[in-house]
């Protein structure tokens, strides 16, 4: 199971805790949308490489 965590804003402690549990014993990747010019091409590549994507608020 490969899981991708995407952040639309700075993750709070709840999100960090949940991500920690979700990523446990799994191959995990992340992508930050909360930047000036997100690389959407890279995001698409990451989404299609992952089994599951979670995009946090």
């Amino acid at each position: 199971m490969k899981i991708l965590q995407v952040y639309r804003s700075e993750p709070n402690n709840d999100v960090k805790t949940l991500v920690g549990i979700l990523n446990r014993d799994r191959e995990a990747d992340e992508f930050n949308l909360n930047v000036e010019n997100p690389d959407y091409d890279q995001l698409v590549t990451k989404i299609f490489a992952a089994d599951k994507t979670v995009c946090w608020w």
Partner: peptide, 14 residues
Amino acid sequence: LQELGEAMRDADFI
């Protein structure tokens, strides 16, 4: 929060 995280490991979509 802990229980939620554990439960969501089994989710198809979050």
